[in-house]
Computed example of a mutant assay.
Amino acid sequence: MTIRDVAQAAGVHVSTVSRAFSASHLVKRETRDRVLAVAAELGYQPNETARALTTGRTRNLGLIVSDIANPFYPPLIKAAQAYARVRGYQVFVADTDEDVHAEEELIQTLARQVDGIVLVSPRLANDVIARLGGDLPFVLVNRQVTGLSAVLMDVAHGATLAVEHLAGLGHGHLALVGGPRGSWTSAEMRRAAGRAAAEQGIRLDVLGPNAPTEQGGIKATAAVLRTGATGVIAYNDLVAIGLIEGLDDREVLVPRDVSVVGVDDTVAGRLNRPRLTTVAMPTAPAGRTAVDLLIETVETAGTARATAQTTLATSLVVRDSTATSGPSAG
């Protein structure tokens, strides 16, 4: 199949087909979608080598996450890759293992091989991200840096819902087990939970920083028990699962003695016993939206284009790890 076959089948000029693949911002969305659908049906694949020589672009994108083993990330990665493929791009995925030095090195390495980078929950300081983002199109997920486009999940709303849920169950003393240092999500949770607790007239103890892992939750168990809190909000589902394990080892039962809320709504939380009450995060939509923003940024390079910020909704999923307040675990 050739580009002329696609143009004839789609009822457009050959130049329109070319722009749909190489400069989609110049084509109406409905026209672009029709051209891409026809191309897929006919099995047409553009010559990427020739296109790279013409446009100076690789049609490759980078996607960097802090821990690929965390079940929060695979749905986001899968959605990002699938959407990029539809748009004629490929995605290189890299994992920093929660190491800020590795994160900066990966950005610098990928910058030589890709047209732009999606940086998910970065741990680098804002000024470092801004400097690196000045050399290459960036889109951030769950981080705000002036001058860079971002896709945010409404963590603040989720933390507020978690506090209100626990307060409604009669818990007058809560603990927030925060995440790692440098986490935008953890900072947002802390601010929103603090406001919500004050509005509800209940006490909130903030514990952290903590590793965003099951082991991090286990290690936080003793500190949680020392607070005497009967309701706990964990940084993510992994921390919540580790906390439940640590409490069980001390014969403190969830939710009889302590109620626990996670964040992310991962498969691990749904399979855990008790099944985890959690804040559902829109991971797959975030992956698609971030790639869409990045491609638009790449394809409008050299033109004046304002940065974009999109906030995606979160919700509370109530399961078995929360219940009405009982005797204090402390």
Rank of each mutant, 00 (worst) to 15 (best):
L63Y: 00
I117N: 05
L76I: 11
R4N: 14
P74H: 00
G88F: 14
R87C: 07
V35L: 04
A111W: 00
A39Y: 01
R87T: 06
A94Y: 05
E48S: 15
P75A: 06
I3T: 08
Y73V: 07
A39C: 10
E98C: 00
V114A: 00
N47E: 00
G116H: 02
P71Y: 00
L124F: 12
P71Q: 02
Y73W: 03
D115Q: 02
R34Q: 03
L63R: 02
V120N: 02
V86E: 15
F72C: 05
D127K: 11
K78A: 15
E105H: 13
D127T: 10
N47M: 01
H101M: 10
Y83W: 11
A37P: 07
L124T: 10
A84N: 05
Y44Q: 08
A37D: 03
V12R: 10
V118D: 09
R112A: 15
A84D: 12
V114T: 02
V35S: 09
V14L: 13
K78D: 15
S24Q: 08
I3S: 06
A20H: 09
E30R: 12
T31P: 09
L36G: 02
V128Q: 12
L119S: 01
A50C: 05
P75K: 01
R112Y: 04
V93W: 03
S121W: 10
V114E: 02
P46F: 08
S24C: 07
R123E: 09
T31E: 08
R59P: 10
Y83N: 11
E105I: 10
E41F: 11
P75H: 01
Y73R: 03
R4F: 14
G43C: 04
Q113G: 13
T16W: 05
S18P: 12
E30Y: 08
I3R: 08
L63W: 01
A52T: 06
N70E: 00
V27D: 01
Q90H: 15
R131L: 12
A80Q: 08
V38A: 13
R112K: 13
R57M: 09
P75W: 01
A40G: 08
G62M: 02
G56K: 04
V17P: 13
D99A: 07
V93L: 06
Q45L: 14
L76K: 01
T58P: 11
N60M: 12
K28W: 06
F21E: 02
L42H: 06
D97T: 11
V12F: 07
T49S: 13
R19N: 13
L61P: 05
L63C: 03
V118W: 06
S66E: 05
A50P: 09
V86G: 12
R29L: 15
R57G: 12
I117W: 07
V93P: 01
V38M: 08
L106H: 11
D99Y: 03
I77N: 00
R131I: 04
K28V: 10
L61E: 04
T58A: 11
Q45K: 13
H25G: 03
A84F: 05
H25S: 07
D127W: 04
K28Q: 14
Q113K: 14
N126T: 11
A7S: 09
T16F: 02
D97Q: 11
A50T: 07
Q81R: 00
I68R: 09
R57K: 07
V12W: 05
